[in-house]
Write a protein that binds this DNA or RNA. Structure first.
Lengths: 325, 325
DNA sequence: ATAATAGGCTAAACCGTTTTAGCCAAATTC
DNA sequence: GAATTTGGCTAAAACGGTTTAGCCTATTAT
């Protein structure tokens, strides 16, 4: 319509008119036609040709998990003023759904992936044809050469929470964790175990339950823990807020008296815990820092800037249950 | 590699081998090669050609909002076995961000949109070049010819909650709502107002505060409500869980005594409310039904099947604060 | 014996960009 | 005056699929 080739139009739109010597007059004429007809280039065709979509994919276990959705929001906010977009899939921490989700994202040509993965190493992910797009692991460490992981210091968090119990001279301290294969659950367990040992307590296998990292998982684990023969614990540490919610529900339904008697502590804080009649200590994971760091890693990788390094973010202890001293 | 044309491969992959008479032997051979080499067709090239991406876009205010994330999850679960995908953007209930988000989604060729919109009517959306793709409004009604909306019966929910207060002979019943332009906030206000009138109470404008549908909004509204001259309310109805959280935080920080004295009720339930020392009635919005309905509307629209109808889902009253009778 | 049909397959256009290589005329250099 | 450079532009391939129209052979109908 401006009497020029599409090559010329492409150059003008992409601001490459200078490099390709297009006359000012032609630029003006083409711009006029573009403005007049409200022409908008197809992002789609562009992405098709360029093999990049300015989209990054986030794969998480559960969008309803408060901590994960805080991460999601941070990443989305960060991403907004970069011209990139976020696409999200959830996997219910199921390996097959995860693979499926990643495959889908790859087929939609995301430029990078942020994964809260259920896999202990990146073999499964290497197997997928990732075309060399960057992957950043969030919340859970994933083994492999050159993997980039952004996580909370789960060991320290669990250690500190457990220490609060041992300082109160509690002995029978139980642990409800997520699946043992997940690095965050494993590290939290190690922190718990070491804090017990430090206090001279022998970890009692009967007081340790691993299950799904969900409300239902917490409910079932609570049932197992509280109905076993060897007697009830004095305190329980749950490895996530979801697990705590399940535990509370179980106690509420089956043995409300326990609610005041057994001390509780949990990973992940929740605002309503301030109002509970029993004081629950918590470890707050800094979703803001974690999300931003993961985002920065992704952007660095995409733009090939400098070394991209893993990061371990310190947790923040929220003490509601003061130790009398 | 199987010694056939890409046409044939395309037919086989899309299950059109039958229509185009491809021999069983050829199908087998092609499949073998596909399996062996792990070939996955590019969804992208496919979408480019077909001008449809099997992706539907969800635009919500805040992914951290528990109710909205329940909706999101339901929709994602529904969508999973349809071969479609979900892409999500959040808008902080900001009109410009909403427009921006929709524009982005359109440029990525979503096949349909589900919007939790801040606009009272669909004029702004019509203005965007939607290429005729279906739009379903969720959670909030949006005016316009032929708009499809899936919402809770907000009026009834608020009415019932308020009625619980009036039956306890409470007189000074306050309302903390979202922005007045939003249909859900408006309808909840109307329900509150009518329940008061039915009980012979004149709505007192000093007891009604509208603000942002967020925790911070609730905090500010609480401040306004509880520091005003005309005296404090006996009861407060918040129009969402986020507002309640803000209100609780404000009370906790500034006047913890109020926590026991003022009765509370809220839209949206939360599991932890079961454990609070003060009993809070709530209206549970059926995220499952709402999400499924929105999804069904979208699918019907995409496939052009039958009439697509708006839906109003009844709320469920959760009574924690029994009326002595 | 010829025409029509059916079975099995493919060539090539198309979607809307980007990009490489190169064309042509005018100006400059040798 | 010929050779080179420069300025201004474009043809055509490429991305990876889908789809239309049609080719060729073998069989069946007339």
């Amino acid at each position: 319509m401006a009497g020029v080739s599409k090559t010329t139009v492409s150059f003008i739109i992409n601001g490459k008119a200078g490099e390709h010597q297009i006359s000012a007059e032609t630029i003006r004429r083409v711009q006029a036609v573009i403005d007049e007809h409200g022409y908008v280039p197809s992002e789609f065709a562009r992405g098709f040709r360029l093999r990049q979509t300015r989209t990054i994919g986030l794969v998480v276990g559960d969008v309803n998990n408060r901590f994960l959705s805080l991460l999601e929001k941070t990443i989305e906010t960060e991403i907004r003023n970069t011209g990139f977009n976020l696409i999200i899939a959830s996997t219910e921490d199921n390996a097959e759904l995860e693979t499926e989700a990643i495959r889908t994202m790859l087929s939609k040509f995301v430029d990078a992936l942020i994964l809260v993965s259920v896999h202990p190493d990146n073999m499964e992910h290497n197997r997928l044809n990732t075309r060399g797009i960057p992957i950043v692991y969030l919340d859970r460490m994933v083994e492999g050469q050159n993997t980039v992981c952004v996580t909370t210091d789960n060991y320290a968090g669990a250690f500190q929470l457990t220490e609060q119990f041992t300082r109160q001279s509690l002995k029978r301290i139980a642990f409800i964790g997520g699946l043992e294969t997940l690095s965050n659950s494993k590290d939290r367990y190690r922190g718990y175990e070491d804090a017990l040992k430090q206090a001279g307590i022998d970890p009692d296998p009967a007081l340790v339950i691993h299950g799904e990292f969900t409300v239902e998982g917490g409910y079932h684990s609570a049932e197992q823990l509280l109905t076993q023969k060897s007697g009830q614990p004095d305190a329980i540490l749950t490895a996530s807020y979801t697990l705590l919610e399940g535990l509370l529900q179980y106690m509420h339904n089956h043995d409300p008296d326990l609610l005041g008697r057994i001390k509780l502590a949990t990973f992940d804080d929740h605002p309503l815990l301030d109002f509970m009649p029993f004081k629950i200590n918590a470890v707050l994971q800094d979703a803001n820092t974690l999300g931003k760091a993961a985002f920065d890693c992704v952007m660095k990788s995409i733009h090939g800037e400098g070394p991209v390094e893993s990061l371990v973010v310190p947790p923040m202890l929220i003490i509601r249950d003061q130790i009398e001293s």
